[in-house]
C-alpha cells in the first residue's frame, strides 16, 4: 500500500494545458475521487499517474518515490479502463493471468492467484469464457480481477461504471466500494458523475480546466464549496447564486424554504420569491422563480420534500427564508469564497 502524490504536475497538448499545475496527495488506503466535467483533465491526470502519458513538468510520487521516468509496469499500479480493455482473444482466466505471466510467475502460482482474485469477485464460474460471452457487469468484474491479481499499491479506475445501465450501476457502486474497503488499497477513481463521487469517495478532488478547484470530503465539497464552480457543479439542482452589489450570495435549493412552514429558531434571512414554475418529481417538488438581486432579478430554485404539502402556485409571490448559517458568500470577480458579509 502506498500514497500517490503529484507536485506542480503539468501536461500540455500543443497549446492546451490539459493538466495545469496539480498538487494532490492521497492518504493511505483512501478512496480518492477525481470529479469534473468532461475535458477537465481528470483522465489525463490519471494517465499521467499510470505512466501512459509523460508530464510536461512536475513530479509524480508513488509510495514516496518519484516515478516520472518509470514505465507503467514499474509503478506498481493497476488500472481499470472505461471500456475494460479485456483481451478479446483470451479466456477470462488468461485475461486475469496475463499480468502475472508478464511478471514471470510459475503456472501453478498463477492458477492459485487467478482463483483467489476470481473468488473475491465471484467470477469463478466464468473463467473459461471469452469476454464477448460476458455481460457488462461481468466484464467489469473481470477487469477488476485483472487489476487485483497483481496486488498493486495503487488502483487507478477510469469511469469503470459508465458502461453499465443505471440499475446495475447502483449495485456495482456499492460492490466496488465494499471491495475497496476490504482490500484497503489506495484508489484513485475518475468520474464525471457527482452521485458516484459523493457516494463512494472518502475525499473528492473537483477539477476544472486542468486545475484542482477543491479537495475535501463529500460533506466539505457540498456544504463548504471553495468557489462558484464547485458550488454549481455539485448538487442537483445546483446552488442558487444571487447577485448583490459587490458579492454573490449562494444557497442550496433545499435550504430555501417557505416562511410559513419553516420552524427554525436560528437567525434567518427572508426573500420575496416570485414563483414562475413548479415541477413535481415524486419525492421532491422543484419551485422555479426569481428573487430580487443587485441588477434586477436573479433566478432561484427551491427544492421541497414531497412531505411538505404547502400549496404553491406559479405566478404568485411568497416569503421564503434561509438560515443565515446556510448562506455562502463569493467574490464577484474571482468567484472565490469569502467571509460572511452584512446583508
Amino acid at each position: 500500500m502506498a500514497i500517490v502524490e503529484t507536485r506542480g504536475l503539468r501536461k500540455h497538448f500543443g497549446d492546451v494545458a490539459a493538466v495545469d499545475g496539480v498538487d494532490l496527495a492521497s492518504k493511505e488506503g483512501e478512496f480518492l475521487v477525481l470529479l469534473g466535467p468532461s475535458g477537465c483533465g481528470k483522465t489525463t491526470l490519471l494517465r499521467l499517474i499510470a505512466g501512459l502519458e509523460q508530464p510536461t513538468a512536475g513530479e509524480i510520487l508513488i509510495g514516496g518515490q518519484v516515478v516520472n521516468g518509470l514505465p507503467p509496469r514499474a509503478r506498481k499500479i493497476a488500472m481499470v479502463f472505461q471500456s475494460y480493455a479485456l483481451y478479446p482473444h483470451m479466456t477470462v482466466f488468461n485475461n486475469i493471468a496475463f499480468p502475472l505471466k508478464a511478471q514471470g510467475m510459475s503456472p501453478e502460482e498463477r492458477k492459485k492467484k487467478v482463483e483467489w482474485a476470481a473468488s473475491l469477485l465471484g467470477i469463478n464460474r466464468l473463467l473459461h469464457r471469452f469476454p464477448r460471452q460476458l455481460s457488462g457487469g461481468e466484464r467489469q468484474r473481470v477487469a477488476l480481477a485483472r487489476a487485483l491479481v497483481r496486488e498493486p499499491s495503487i488502483f487507478l479506475l477510469d469511469e469503470p461504471l459508465s458502461n453499465l445501465d443505471a440499475q446495475l450501476r447502483a449495485s456495482a457502486r456499492d460492490e466496488l466500494q465494499q471491495f475497496q474497503r476490504r482490500i484497503g488499497t489506495t484508489t484513485v477513481y475518475v468520474t464525471h458523475d457527482q452521485v458516484e463521487a459523493m457516494g463512494m469517495g472518502d475525499r473528492i478532488s473537483v477539477m476544472y480546466q486542468g486545475k484542482v478547484r477543491q479537495i475535501g470530503t463529500p460533506q466539505e465539497i457540498y456544504h463548504e464549496p471553495a468557489d462558484t464552480f464547485v458550488a454549481t457543479f455539485l448538487g442537483s439542482p445546483p446552488m442558487n447564486l444571487v447577485e448583490r452589489k459587490d458579492y454573490l450570495l449562494g444557497f442550496r435549493p433545499e435550504h430555501f424554504l417557505p416562511k410559513d412552514i419553516a420552524s427554525v429558531q436560528d437567525k434567518t434571512v427572508t426573500f420575496q420569491f416570485r414563483v414562475t414554475r413548479v415541477e413535481y418529481l415524486g419525492a421532491d417538488r422543484l419551485i422555479y422563480g426569481v428573487v430580487a438581486g443587485a441588477n434586477g432579478e436573479s433566478k432561484a430554485i427551491s427544492r421541497l420534500s414531497a412531505t411538505l404539502t404547502f400549496p404553491i402556485e406559479p405566478g404568485k409571490g411568497y416569503d421564503f427564508l434561509i438560515r443565515s448559517q446556510d448562506l455562502k458568500f463569493f467574490d464577484k470577480a474571482t468567484g472565490l469564497r469569502t467571509g460572511p458579509k452584512l446583508l
Binding site: 505512466g51 514505465p71 509496469r73 499500479i77 488500472m79 480493455a85 483481451y87 511478471q103 497483481r150
Partner: peptide, 15 residues
C-alpha cells in the same frame, strides 16, 4: 486495435 487495449498491455507490464 483499440487504444485502451494497448494501454492495458502497457499497465499489465508485458514486454
Amino acid at each position: 486495435i483499440p487504444q485502451d487495449i494497448k494501454d492495458a498491455v502497457a499497465v499489465d507490464g508485458a514486454s
